[in-house]
Design a protein around this nucleic acid. Sequence first.
DNA 1: CTATAATCACCCTGTAAGGGTGATTTTTTT
DNA 2: AAAAAAATCACCCTTACAGGGTGATTATAG
Lengths: 208, 208
Amino acid sequence: MSRDIRVTIIEDDETIRQGYSFLIGTTDGYEVVSAYGSYDDAAKKLAGDKPDVILLDIEMPGTNGIDAIPKIKKQLPQCFVLLLTVYESEQQIFNALANGASGYLTKNTASARIIESIREVKDGGGPMSVNIAKLVIRSFQKNQESPLSKRETQILELIAEGKNRTQIARDLFIDPETVRSHVKNIYVKLDVNSRADAIKTARKNKLI
Amino acid sequence: MSRDIRVTIIEDDETIRQGYSFLIGTTDGYEVVSAYGSYDDAAKKLAGDKPDVILLDIEMPGTNGIDAIPKIKKQLPQCFVLLLTVYESEQQIFNALANGASGYLTKNTASARIIESIREVKDGGGPMSVNIAKLVIRSFQKNQESPLSKRETQILELIAEGKNRTQIARDLFIDPETVRSHVKNIYVKLDVNSRADAIKTARKNKLI
DNA sequence: CTATAATCACCCTGTAAGGGTGATTTTTTT
DNA sequence: AAAAAAATCACCCTTACAGGGTGATTATAG
């Protein structure tokens, strides 16, 4: 036996906010302790609400959801933030996760799944809807059609670790001149002429 | 209306393999086209099986699951690989995703969720169990207790992009000498004396 | 059997890196 | 209000690295 999960909702659309409040509030084991239309409205009251989980929208007047996450985490370090949003921009997802979000759902997620996800974050899991997970998974995957050879890719990875020719040569048991030669070929293939540009191009095209 | 989803199972434990075969084979809309005890057994036959989705175990005799992924993707580029494994090592997950896996479930996943996930990968989603997602999410999150100041973190990030003092100075509208000064402080705080070591230490401790 | 990959060599110039030392100003914290 | 931390810039120094050019040898694979 354990007490209800305390949930706070921060969402500017009143209809959606009330919808979630009703959905969660009427579910056994869950309690909606508060609901706000913006983070700025919520800011001073959150400490008193002591929610276990905050359902947070990203698009909001005033402080947006992503910027709100670190502020929330500062006030309530034990609190889990579950993002619930319509947007699926890769950069937005990464920023949200980097800022401390514990889960990420899109608004088309079924009610039952939302309820389930609230419990999952509370239990230390990391719920993600499949469309979000797809973007995250893809972000890990390298481009299969790289113009670079294996050795070149390997060397570019070491360059991206900030290593210089000498260090790379030592790592790979080859001559620094050979490293240099590979680097030149990498530059030609990527059409760049500096380490920074090579790293940038390589990351953009997921070559490393 | 659409034809059945063609599923191949590669799993060395016979009991589990038969369990999955039965589970999936008896579900409407799914068809188990083949089941193998190892990738090496499957290798030559996969092309003929033409599965839409392969359920793949990681721990197997011969070629392990992670090394098998790129080989599978080479033979069947359109085929989705769904990993189903007991291990939850961070490095293993990242390697699997980098090698081209489309989803990642742990073996304690409920039958219904497995069936659902097969359809999700087929439809281009990226199913992940919550424990896996948690590790992935955590990999995005920075350490909140960084010894570095904001400016120092910012500069270290630019160093990790391969930029030199002059470029960093231009980016931040400050003097190269100031950049240098920050870099020296970063080195002292991280107890290193080269860019490569600073990047390494920072990444290890998730400071950037 | 020929392209690609991987290896090494030596020319060259400019600049970047890192150590030392110190100072000023702004911001934050106590 | 005082003290601490962060951010800014300056000039000393030496060594090493970066990147362009040009060319050659030896696998390896298609």
